[in-house]
């Protein structure tokens, strides 16, 4: 029994290491910023959805490093994110969702007072050890309409990629062409009268250009896609890293919509199309201004 107790203690110590390292990597200014995020914490240090700012402090160091030094993000119009509840709707690309992390970091680092965008995770995530716990503590929850409705009622800002994996895992020839949008966000926006902030991320497409999507292999492995990039799977391990492209992030003016949330698909899709068109325009403008992919 003593051995088991010792083992438990040892595991406890090991378990603290990532948190401590993360905490060290975040500067005091970053931690102070985390404390300025408006939250509704309960008696046990977490909010109604398991978000814990103390855990976020362990993650922002790395996030800020990626934001400032790896992708060297330029952010425009961050003050278009209002104070109350809102949707941030953006294009999705780059095989791995770094664009989501960078959009969140933009709202956190550049806006004053900082806001933390909540995003909604895929259905397979809650079954993953460590990842599920980490994401929950950092304010990300499972993407069900019910969860989203409650977050909006709490006045949160929610990041949504209506393209989903259609956008994330698209191949190189479709770069910067918005894929079909889902309509769930629009129905929720109409129902709760939530403003929509369109956003465009330029630079994420080139971080991992997918030449070919090995769908059959993906089905075999239970993955949504297996992108073949110039370096993946040719270079094992490191080949998965995104290339250090330069990100340009644009937040557009909030759009508001009125109407019946339970309307026919066609009526809702018209409004979805409006957001789709706006974001496509923002992407095209951003691409026209860009001189180089890497600087």
């Amino acid at each position: 029994m003593d051995f088991v107790v010792a083992l438990a203690k040892w595991f406890e110590l090991i378990g603290k290491i990532p948190g401590e390292l993360g905490s060290l990597s975040a500067s005091p200014e970053l931690k102070a910023r985390v404390d300025r995020i408006p939250t509704r914490l309960g008696a046990h240090g977490v909010d109604a959805f398991g978000f814990n700012p103390e855990s976020l402090k362990c993650a922002v160091g790395l996030g800020a490093w990626f934001y400032e030094h790896y992708f060297r993000c330029d952010t425009y119009g961050v003050n278009n994110i209002p104070d109350g509840r809102c949707f941030v709707i953006a294009n999705h690309s780059g095989q791995l969702p770094f664009d989501g992390a960078m959009l969140s970091m933009a709202a956190f680092l550049e806006r004053d007072p900082p806001r933390f965008l909540r995003s909604m995770v895929e259905r397979f995530v809650p079954s993953l050890p460590f990842v599920s716990t980490f994401l929950t503590r950092c304010g990300q929850i499972l993407g069900t309409p019910e969860n989203c409705r409650r977050l909006l009622e709490n006045g949160e800002a929610i990041l949504v990629f209506p393209e989903g994996v259609r956008g994330l895992n698209k191949t190189w020839e479709h770069r910067y062409r918005l894929q079909r949008f889902g309509q769930g966000f629009m129905r929720l926006a109409l129902e709760t009268n939530t403003p929509i902030v369109p956003a465009a991320v330029i630079g994420a497409e080139e971080q991992a250009p997918s030449l070919f999507n090995a769908k059959a292999l993906g089905n075999l492995l239970g993955l949504p896609a297996v992108p073949i990039t110039p370096t993946f799977p040719l270079v094992p391990g490191l080949g998965m890293l995104p290339y250090p492209t330069k990100y340009r992030i644009y937040f557009g003016e909030p759009m508001t919509f009125n109407g019946n949330a339970d309307d026919e698909d066609a009526a809702v899709l018209d409004r979805v199309q409006e957001v789709h068109a706006r974001i496509q325009t923002m992407i095209d403008d951003g691409l026209a201004k860009r001189k180089n992919v890497f600087w």
């Binding site: 088991v4 107790v5 438990a8 595991f11 309960g42 008696a43 046990h44």
Partner: peptide
Amino acid sequence: EPLPLSRIFHVLGKPTLP
């Protein structure tokens, strides 16, 4: 209130084995 399981272990003060 809803609380993380780890919070319960912390208050209990018992060793846990992952």
